[in-house]
Design a protein around this nucleic acid. Sequence first.
DNA 1: GATATGATTGACGTATACGTAAAGCTGGGG
DNA 2: CCCCAGCTTTACGTATACGTCAATCATATC
Lengths: 152, 152
Amino acid sequence: MTVATKKAKMGAARAFVEAHGEAEAPDFFSISDLADEFGVTHRAIRFYEAKGLLSPKRLNGARIYSRRDRARLRIIVRAKSLGYTLEDIKDYLDLYGQQGEGRIKQLEITAARSAKMIAELEAKKQQIDEQIEELRLINEVCRRKVAKKKAR
Amino acid sequence: MTVATKKAKMGAARAFVEAHGEAEAPDFFSISDLADEFGVTHRAIRFYEAKGLLSPKRLNGARIYSRRDRARLRIIVRAKSLGYTLEDIKDYLDLYGQQGEGRIKQLEITAARSAKMIAELEAKKQQIDEQIEELRLINEVCRRKVAKKKAR
DNA sequence: GATATGATTGACGTATACGTAAAGCTGGGG
DNA sequence: CCCCAGCTTTACGTATACGTCAATCATATC
């Protein structure tokens, strides 16, 4: 598909997307835009929506994603690669979506939960460092043996 | 079950385990030992064996785990918490099990693979840092708002 | 208007990682 | 000798996270 014919063959969503914002900083995205950008399938994105992690607007049935939706998807993909379940991620997004609304009690809960998550992530970094340490050992042992064998 | 009767009701594996090594630095472990230590079920440990990640010795059918088996299980649990599949972990354990054996070609491959894994783990740390950064923001916003509301 | 592209909704299938229930050895205590 | 605790295998079930059709619809070009 050439660049010339591309625009011609766009669907409703993509047309709407290109109408708003000139390429540099788009305000809206089609499902294919996000799928391409984050390396996930359309199916996965719709699945996240079915699980309540996303809730894009519609245009003639087609999904229209805002920047906020895109930010949420970025979080989903990142957290998944760190081993979190969609259930975990949903909790995080709920917290992320509130961004300090509500009364004192709610704010304190959110502060506590975010602090807890930070602690868990620091623990994970620790685990990664341990793993890296072991790998460095293996790596050095191998390289030394290679050097020794080549020296003969 | 009391401490007195515990020894009496031990199975073959546990008896064997207690016979070798006096509590401080055991050489062998029963499946329950490892399950307790790493917070996983017996079922999970057997499953890892079925997938080729562990291969303990047997005594009258009962599994006897060596320190090396235990080290491997530690790696499995850790890597799983970082989001790796058992398939991924199997590859890592294969590499870990060799520890620089074989000829030059093999050593170079192992060195390259370990280097690659290190790079991937560093990338994961980066992702974690991004996530932490967002959480810090949320946390601070909440705490400031709480402070503001309480100041009135 | 036929055709092609891209989107949508079901519905069913699949891979991973175990859980769970059933049935059977085994070794020591009473 | 029997029982019980703990281990075993076998087998089927389950939750998560999608993959894969199939049918359908809208839009846009030929």
